[in-house]
Simulated assay, not measured.
Amino acid sequence: MYPARWSRTSPPFRDELEAESMSGIALEDCCAIEISDGQYRILSATGEETAYSYTHRDGSVECSTLPEGEFDDLSALL
């Protein structure tokens, strides 16, 4: 859950993560993350949707895409 003060009028997700010194995951519409037994995988309705991992390091937030498909170790996201 995200803080109640976040809304459609707030700065973009990445800016909020940077301001709060947090990391996070963002999913495009029609994209999901499945978590099971310490593993995760990204699911996409058409194969064109993307999941993003935002990692807070040294005062800034780095963004990378998460590949769709096979299960991977959940600890890699934490």
Rank of each mutant, 00 (worst) to 15 (best):
M1G: 10
P3C: 08
A4G: 13
A4I: 15
R5I: 01
W6K: 03
W6F: 12
S7C: 13
R8W: 08
R8G: 05
T9V: 07
T9H: 10
S10K: 12
S10N: 07
P11W: 00
R14S: 05
D15I: 01
D15C: 02
D15K: 02
L17V: 09
L17M: 06
L17I: 05
L17N: 07
L17C: 05
E18V: 07
E18G: 04
E18D: 01
A19R: 14
A19L: 07
A19F: 02
E20C: 09
S21W: 02
S21V: 03
M22H: 00
M22C: 01
M22P: 00
G24F: 05
G24S: 07
G24A: 10
I25C: 02
I25S: 01
I25N: 01
I25Y: 01
A26Y: 13
A26C: 11
A26L: 14
L27H: 05
L27C: 03
L27W: 04
E28I: 11
C31L: 07
C31E: 02
A32Y: 11
A32N: 09
A32H: 08
E34V: 14
E34A: 10
E34Y: 08
S36A: 14
S36Y: 15
D37W: 09
D37E: 13
D37L: 11
G38E: 11
Q39T: 07
Y40T: 09
Y40I: 12
R41K: 13
R41M: 05
R41S: 06
I42Y: 12
I42M: 11
I42E: 10
I42S: 07
S44E: 08
S44H: 04
A45P: 00
A45D: 03
A45V: 03
A45S: 03
G47C: 10
G47L: 10
G47R: 06
E48V: 06
T50I: 15
A51Y: 01
A51G: 09
A51T: 03
Y52G: 00
Y52D: 03
S53M: 06
T55K: 15
T55H: 08
H56E: 11
D58V: 08
D58Q: 11
D58F: 10
G59H: 06
G59R: 06
G59K: 04
G59S: 06
S60D: 01
S60Y: 01
V61D: 01
V61S: 01
E62C: 02
C63K: 15
S64F: 08
S64R: 15
T65D: 02
L66I: 04
L66F: 02
L66S: 01
L66Q: 00
P67D: 04
P67G: 04
P67I: 00
P67H: 02
E68N: 07
E68S: 13
E68Y: 04
E68F: 03
E68W: 00
E68C: 11
E68V: 14
G69A: 05
G69W: 07
G69V: 02
E70T: 12
E70C: 08
E70Q: 10
E70Y: 09
E70V: 12
F71R: 07
D72T: 08
D72K: 15
D73W: 15
D73Q: 15
D73S: 14
S75N: 05
A76I: 09
A76R: 15
A76D: 13
L77Y: 15
L77Q: 13
L77R: 14
L78F: 12
